[in-house]
């Protein structure tokens, strides 16, 4: 378990920092921020597309992490999984408060995004510490996989995925639904 791989976001380290943060240790929280903020900012940018919104979401996410660090339970998951979940939930909430059409006319911000339809599929190939889910995603049909990854990385709704892939929404819904069922089956087998 211990991070000899030198991963910046080694779960043990983060879990310990979270526990210290829960006890009100501001220096531990600052270190937690240093170690995770670039990853979470990248995640928020992918979903929100605009730097100002992503900054707002990041600020919100870390305030939440500070406030609710006592709810982190090492028995239920790694520290990184916990902070990633908070960051994604915060980004999705930020997205829901914003009308989508505010996206229009922000070509500059969009241009900074590593976007493109093939990206999510390639991204999952690059995973090194996520072989399991990566391997299981590879077992899905291409459409199932790309739909799921578009939702995960870009925060698209099913309707938006349908528009992006130029498919009927019913088709996309069933891709995602079946994809998730197959994903769970595969991951359960892998960890059994």
């Amino acid at each position: 378990m211990n991070g000899q791989a030198g991963a910046k976001m080694g779960s043990d380290t983060l879990g310990a920092l979270l526990q210290a943060t829960a006890g009100g240790d501001r220096r531990a929280f600052a270190r937690l921020y240093d170690q995770t903020a670039p990853q979470l900012f990248g995640l928020a940018l992918g979903i929100l597309k605009r730097r100002d919104w992503a900054e707002e979401a990041l600020q919100d996410a870390y305030t939440r992490i500070w406030r609710s660090a006592h709810r982190y339970d090492a028995a239920k998951g790694t520290g990184i999984s916990w902070v990633v979940t908070i960051a994604r939930n915060t980004a999705l909430s930020t997205l829901m408060r914003r009308p989508r059409d505010e996206f229009a006319g922000n070509a500059d911000d969009m241009a900074q995004m590593p976007s493109g339809d093939s990206d999510p599929m390639q991204r999952s190939m690059q995973l090194s510490d996520a072989r399991q889910i990566s391997g299981c995603l590879d077992e899905l049909d291409g459409d199932q996989k790309s739909s799921i990854l578009l939702v995960y990385y870009e925060g698209l709704t099913q309707k938006e995925v349908a528009d992006r892939l130029n498919k009927p929404i019913g088709t996309v819904k069933s891709w995602i639904r079946r994809g998730l069922i197959r994903l769970k089956g595969c991951l359960d087998r892998a960890s059994a």
Partner: peptide, 9 residues
Amino acid sequence: RFAPLAGAV
């Protein structure tokens, strides 16, 4: 299950 995906960002 999903969290490792964030590592690819």
